[in-house]
Design a protein around this nucleic acid. Structure first.
Length: 276
DNA sequence: CCCCTCACCTGATCGC
DNA sequence: TGCGATCAGGTGAGGG
């Protein structure tokens, strides 16, 4: 489900409610979510730890613990956190993990649900975290992401631009929605081999990626189906999508009809009238 | 090495 | 109403 903006929204929400708190109790309801860790090791690693901060890397939620380890979560398609301070929680299906959090004033329960069971959650020591971090590409909202750095990851690739943008080892955090939206904004046909983009096109694509992701963060993500934030609220970027999930609708820019094409087994959307 | 396809799961939706 | 096919925000393994 979530790409960078959704993960960022969740991470910020988590930071606001659990940073500085202590983990009182951990329950693993579905052991597969922590594999290949054992449920008991996961519980031991987290219980009694103080949470120093919550952030994001690529599409991962990264929670730093007071012993130097990191509690990391990959939401995949349908992973979802839910925060509640209510004393009696309503039971819901697909519960994977629940964590009782205690801070100075109050306690709350952080629950993690995952319908499709693709999500993963681990506690990693610094070496394991570093190995994971190293595999991931550049953060597109960081200062290091420039037209030049984008050019350097696209230039060696024969793959279509859209597929290159989805490759997390090149650029971290772009998923299916924002790959289509960024190509549209840059007027670039997503089927073009990445290496064929001219320098001005790379510059436009760089700007488009920044703008699309930045606005999506401001709008707290895209909820076209499952995605909700920590408190169950929807994002609003679905209201301003230009091409994604808009097959046969009219392009706002040129009036042509938006098409859906399948690339690397997944839908991509574009306007054949104004993307070249 | 690069890139694509498939598998992993459940649930919603659509056409017949 | 039921039933099968298709699709969904991700990504790692395996193979051409």
């Amino acid at each position: 489900m979530p790409e960078l903006p959704e993960a960022e929204t969740i991470a910020r929400g988590l930071h606001a409610v659990i940073a500085g708190s202590r983990v009182e109790r951990v329950r693993v309801h579905r052991a597969e979510v922590v594999e290949p860790m054992s449920a008991s090791k996961f519980r031991r690693s987290l219980t009694d730890r103080r949470i120093t901060s919550v952030g994001r890397r690529a599409k991962w939620i990264v929670t730093s613990l007071d012993d130097g380890n990191r509690w990391v979560t990959q939401l995949r398609m349908t992973g979802r956190f839910d925060w509640s301070t209510a004393s009696n929680l309503r039971a819901r299906p697909h519960l994977s993990v629940s964590v009782l959090i205690q801070n100075a004033d109050a306690a709350g329960v952080l629950r993690f649900f995952d319908v499709r069971r693709f999500a993963r959650m681990w506690v990693l020591d610094p070496a394991a975290w570093s190995a994971l971090d190293d595999r991931l590409g550049i953060e597109p909202l960081s200062d290091e992401f420039t037209p030049t750095s984008l050019a350097s990851v696209l230039a060696p690739s024969r793959a279509p631009v859209r597929n290159a943008l989805l490759d997390q080892t090149r650029i971290a955090g772009i998923g299916n929605i924002y790959a289509s939206e960024a190509c549209y904004l840059a007027r670039v046909d997503p089927r073009r081999p990445a290496m064929t983009l001219e320098r001005p096109e790379v510059r436009k694509l760089h700007g488009a990626i920044r703008r699309v992701l930045g606005e999506a963060v401001e709008r707290r993500g895209t909820s076209f189906s499952d995605y909700r934030d920590l408190l169950g609220d929807e994002g609003t970027f679905q209201n301003v999508l230009e091409v994604y999930d808009r097959e046969d609708e009219i392009c706002d820019r040129c009036g042509d009809r938006i098409i859906r094409v399948v690339m690397a087994g997944r839908s991509a959307y574009l306007c054949p009238g104004c993307q070249r």
